[in-house]
Structure formats: C-alpha cells, structure tokens
C-alpha cells in the first residue's frame, strides 16, 4: 500500500489516493504509518516545486489531498503519538487581509511535522506579542501579500523585541518579500513560496531532512 499511496499523492491522483487511504484504514491499517507516507509524499511535492517540476497548482492540490486524508486519519491518532518538529505561530500581518499564501504554507509545514498556531489575517503587533507569550513558539511566521505589509512586518518584529520576547526565530513569507524586506524587517529568513518556507523552518531549527 505504502508505495502505491505515496505515488498516487505525488502524481496528484486526488480520488485514487483518498480511496486507497480509506481502504487501508478500513482494513485495519496503521494510522501512524499512513500519516508518515502522506508526510513523505508532501515532502517530495515540495522538493519538486523547488526544482521547478511542480507549480503552485500542484502545491494547492497536494495540500488539498493531504488535508482530505488527515480528516479521517488524525482522529485515529493520540495527541502524544504525533511527533512535532517544533511550534510555529503564524499570521498575516496588520492591514493585510490575504490568506492564500499563509494557508498553503500552513498545509505544507504541518505536513512536515510542525505544530501551527494560526492567528489569522490583519493581525496587529500586540496580537503577535500575546500569541508568542501564550504559545512560546520556536518560530514566528509572518505573511503578507501587499506592499503595506512590509512595514507591518518591521513593526511586528520591533514589538516582539520591545516585549522582551526571544528564543524563537522569525520567518517572513509572501509574494512581496525578498532579502531586502528581510533585512529591513529584521527577520531571520524569508520565503516567497511554501516549499522554500518549510525548508527554511527546518534549517532554522537545525532539523534534518
């Protein structure tokens, strides 16, 4: 089953992969193993994206397949059974209401094994500060699509510093970010696609793979 399911997901066979996953569980299959196969497949989809073989269309569909399978797989797993690479507080910054980029990244970074606390869109600096105090993440992820988001990111990084919060890395992401914005905002890393974002989150925490 494992190889067949893995291939179906990577090949974007939505119907076929969901059917196969259901059959596997119905036949008494191991939910933990199923989760691992799906995660591996998502990792390969991300790699293919970074190599230019896959595009956003495949990231979106891959994310969709993954969440469809997880819907009936996760309830079979116990909270403690799911190993986490780290925790991310994620939101779209103040004055920007866009969610697609954030949501694609969320799907892939969760699939990679991170726990994500999604605090929404148009998130003011103080809400980022509160979320970091409450959830003590390893990474803070800020997303923006519009150019106004650039200074919101900078202000949010400053607000986190002023609140004396540290011991986490900051990654910024979205269509309008680059090295220039990373420097300006004072972030640790930037990504303008989800696959790169996931890879950098692992690098920031020194996680293998």
């Amino acid at each position: 089953m494992h190889e067949e399911l893995f291939n179906k997901i990577v090949d974007m066979d939505e119907e076929g992969s969901i059917k196969l996953a259901k059959e596997y569980l119905d036949g008494g299959g191991d939910a933990q193993k199923l989760l691992n196969v799906c995660r591996d497949a998502m990792g390969v989809i991300g790699d293919k994206f970074e190599k230019g073989e896959y595009f956003l269309s495949e990231l979106l569909l891959g994310g969709e397949i993954f969440s469809s399978i997880m819907e009936f797989t996760l309830p079979l797993l116990k909270e403690g059974d799911i190993a986490k690479l780290g925790k991310i507080v994620l939101g779209t910054v103040k004055d920007d209401i866009h969610n697609i980029g954030k949501d694609i990244f969320k799907a892939f970074v969760e699939a990679a094994g991170f726990e994500v606390v999604d605090i929404g869109v148009d998130v003011p600096e103080e809400k980022f500060v509160e979320a970091v105090k409450e959830h003590k993440p390893d990474i803070v992820g800020m997303s923006c699509l519009i150019t106004a988001g650039i200074s919101s990111m900078k202000n949010t990084v400053e607000a986190l510093k002023e609140a004396g919060l540290k011991d986490f890395k900051i990654i910024i992401g979205g269509g309008r970010v680059d090295e220039e914005v990373k420097e300006l905002a004072g972030a640790d890393a930037w990504a303008d696609d989800a696959a790169r974002g996931v890879r950098l989150c692992k690098e920031l925490l020194g996680v293998e793979g």
């Binding site: 150019t147 650039i150 200074s151 309008r176 970010v177 680059d178 220039e180 914005v181 420097e183 300006l184």
Partner: peptide
Amino acid sequence: PITLLVGG
C-alpha cells in the same frame, strides 16, 4: 523591485 524603493 518595489522592495528596493522601500528598503534601499
């Protein structure tokens, strides 16, 4: 790049 105009 608009980011150069903002951050440069």
